[in-house]
Design a protein around this nucleic acid. Structure first.
Lengths: 129, 129
DNA sequence: TTTAAAATCAGTAACGATTACTATTTTATT
DNA sequence: AATAAAATAGTAATCGTTACTGATTTTAAA
């Protein structure tokens, strides 16, 4: 991602224009309204670049598709298994306990995923992304 | 999942025999040591059944594959982006803050996913899985 | 400006995890 | 045992994503 490209700018503008958590395919159809002949591969490649550079966030809610988020500030995603909606939530004291009170959201199974680097790997400075 | 099947029993025994978080493919190769001509489709179908019935847990760490967990008790999964290892962790007071202290684990981006049912859908009793 | 190297592109083929399909076998019930 | 429902093996298809290739665009320097 060394050079400017009109395509990447359009992709970023599409992501920043929504407060949903769009998939690559949705972004593709939207960005084609700006650049009709843009390639799906281009969308995927630029999304990977934007994610790697930290400009957008990758959200995995377990529906088999990668979702993207323009908001990179610390927050939780409440993903509803019924309607698929992804709700942005902010941390307070105990994030788990306050979910029902604050959002009326019932966590299905109290198992959560935290991604990062384990003790063995965090000192290993050759970790990409 | 109304009738007994030797295949499902073998699949469950394979999952229960490890404390890793195996994928369908790993389970397939392992269970073939017990039932050499078992079909990959059978593995997938039974895993879906076991997950639906709550006997195993589905873990999505964002590597494009579904992982399974025999331990259905409340815990977090710390997935290392470098080595792919999935570490089981237990909640204390503030799950986020204590991660570095307790496990030496550095969360990459403080955004977490919680799956469940939103306020609109939780009263809707026709929600599968 | 012209130019050349590097980066990016469009288009398409390939990939891998998962799901769907079908004819056959197994299970539970009579 | 006879029957119907459920589960199977094997294979084909699906779908999100990645890889490839030759053409185009961008950058930086002459």
């Amino acid at each position: 991602m060394k050079n400017y490209s009109r395509q990447r700018e359009a992709i970023l503008s599409v992501i920043s224009s929504t407060d949903t958590h769009p998939t690559a395919d949705w972004i593709y159809t939207e960005v084609r309204k700006l650049i009709p002949n843009i390639s799906l591969g281009t969308v995927y490649r630029n999304l990977a670049d934007l994610r790697q550079s930290g400009m957008v966030l990758s959200v995995d809610v377990g529906d088999g598709k990668e979702h993207f988020d323009y908001d990179t500030s610390p927050h939780l995603h409440l993903s509803c298994k019924a309607c698929g909606k992804i709700i942005d939530a902010r941390l307070k004291s105990d994030p788990i306990a306050s979910l029902s009170e604050d959002y009326g959201f019932v966590p299905e199974i109290p198992v959560y995923v935290v991604r990062g680097y384990c003790a063995a790997c965090k000192s290993n400075s050759l970790n990409p992304q």
